[in-house]
Amino acid sequence: MGVLSHAVLPMLALALHELARFYFLARAETLNLAQRDFIVNARARGISPWRLRWAYIGRSLISAFLSRLSDTLTGLVSAVFFVEIVFSYPGTGYLIYSAILDRDYVLLQGAVVFMAGVVLLMNWLVDGLSGHLARRG
Rank of each mutant, 00 (worst) to 15 (best):
E29S: 11
R51L: 03
V40M: 15
R45E: 01
V40A: 14
W54T: 12
S48K: 14
L66A: 08
I62N: 07
I57Q: 05
E29Y: 11
L61K: 12
N32S: 15
A55K: 13
A42M: 07
A20T: 09
L52I: 10
F65A: 14
P49W: 02
R59M: 08
L31G: 08
R59L: 11
L25N: 04
D37E: 15
L14R: 11
W50D: 02
A20R: 09
E18Y: 10
R59E: 02
A64S: 13
A44T: 06
D37T: 14
L25S: 02
V40P: 03
S60T: 10
I47P: 01
E29R: 11
R27W: 11
A28C: 09
R43E: 10
A13S: 13
A15M: 13
R51C: 01
I57V: 14
Y23D: 02
L14H: 13
A42Y: 01
L12E: 10
E29F: 10
S63R: 13
G58C: 03
I57T: 13
F65V: 12
S48C: 04
P49Q: 10
R51F: 01
A64M: 06
A55L: 13
S60Q: 12
R36D: 00
Y56Q: 06
L14I: 10
A64Y: 14
L52N: 03
F38K: 12
M11W: 05
